[in-house]
């Protein structure tokens, strides 16, 4: 085998299906939104060619057209919008079971995923939701690059210990943080065995600039001083039917992302689709430190037949 093999699902159809479904669910999510006129016009605004009428989703899920001149943003309290973002953010997207597959054979430490992620989540350069590590498992084994997001564990130690329900697991498998709730005790950081969590030790980057932006729990911005942040599987993008920031910005085809219920994952670079189970089966996919019982949702394909040179020995710093 030349490289870890994706199993392309019957041509282009699988992919279109998957993306279409993503789109439908994003629509449903928005439709459910109370106060949706604002939310919808803000997120899903669709102008018609003449610019006279716009389509918006009403609170009960109807798609209606209104003259643009009559459209005005409801001057609701920012809190109402936050409440709504909060409600749907905590609920998750019904019927989905998100999963990520990271092909270690393809990673050459381009760090584009990290850049895209840090830009989207208003992070400082030393704050990582995803961090690519140089790994070397034992003395004589070969080093390799390993991108490490949050694993969105199905038995998440971080969620268990949170005293105020500020970090929680949604029905679609994503573990999120509510930084309006977080008291900054950092017990979750202590509990996460994968060092996936970070803390806003200072005023976050650009906090002044974004301070009026309503808080979106699915994007965890604006970041807040004294609270936790971590990888969110780009829950905001998933809601819009798009792939996560890191996944779509990788130039090397490292990431696959999709829905375990449908058993489909899509490669962020090539956009080809594959059966998740087949991909894992054919390539010996595994989860990291699964003996801890955390049940990660991020799978790795082993770094065999690497297509890029291994990281230099001198860069390797093991545990110490």
């Amino acid at each position: 085998m030349e490289e870890n093999n994706p199993i392309i699902e019957s041509g282009d159809e699988g992919r279109r299906n998957f993306l279409k479904k993503l789109g439908i669910f994003a629509g449903v999510g928005v439709a459910a939104a109370a106060g949706a006129v604002y939310v919808a016009s803000d997120y899903e605004e669709k102008k018609n060619p003449e610019g006279k009428k716009v389509r918006v989703l009403t609170a009960d899920g109807q798609l209606v057209e209104v003259p643009e001149s009559e459209l005005q943003k409801i001057e609701q309290e920012e809190l109402d919008i936050e409440d709504e973002l909060q409600r749907r953010g905590r609920e998750g997207i019904a019927g989905k079971s998100w999963v990520m597959v990271i092909d270690l054979a393809k990673c050459r430490n381009a760090r584009m995923c990290i850049a895209a992620c840090q830009a989207a989540h208003q992070l400082r350069p030393e704050q990582y939701h995803i961090n690519t590590l140089v790994m070397k498992d034992s003395e004589h084994s070969a080093p390799y690059y390993m991108p490490k997001p949050c694993y969105h564990c199905d038995n998440p130690p971080c969620v268990k210990v949170c005293p105020v329900n500020a970090t929680f697991k949604r029905q679609d498998g994503i573990v999120l943080i509510d930084n309006l709730r977080c008291i900054g005790c950092r017990f979750c950081v202590a509990a996460c065995p994968y060092s996936a969590r970070i803390f806003n030790w200072f005023e976050p980057r650009d906090s002044e600039k974004y301070k009026d932006q309503p808080y979106d729990v699915e994007l965890n911005v604006p970041q807040k001083k004294g609270t936790i942040s971590k990888c969110l599987f780009s829950a905001d993008r998933l809601r819009k039917g798009e792939l996560p920031y890191c996944v779509s910005s990788c130039p090397n085809g490292v990431y696959w992302f999709g829905d375990m219920n449908e058993d489909v994952v899509v490669n962020g670079t090539t956009k080809e689709a594959a059966r998740f189970s087949q991909l894992i089966k054919d390539n010996g996919g595994y989860t990291y430190l699964e003996e801890l019982g955390t049940k990660p949702r991020v799978y790795y394909l082993p770094p065999k037949n690497r297509i890029f040179p291994a990281p230099g020995e001198e860069q390797v710093s093991s545990h110490s």
């Binding site: 030393e126 990582y128 961090n131 690519t132 590590l133 140089v134 790994m135 490490k148 202590a190 065995p193 994968y194 060092s195 430190l289 710093s317 093991s318 545990h319 110490s320």
Partner: peptide, 11 residues
Amino acid sequence: QQHPYLPIQNV
């Protein structure tokens, strides 16, 4: 805390 399972890098 200085010895997590995964190496501390890029910080």
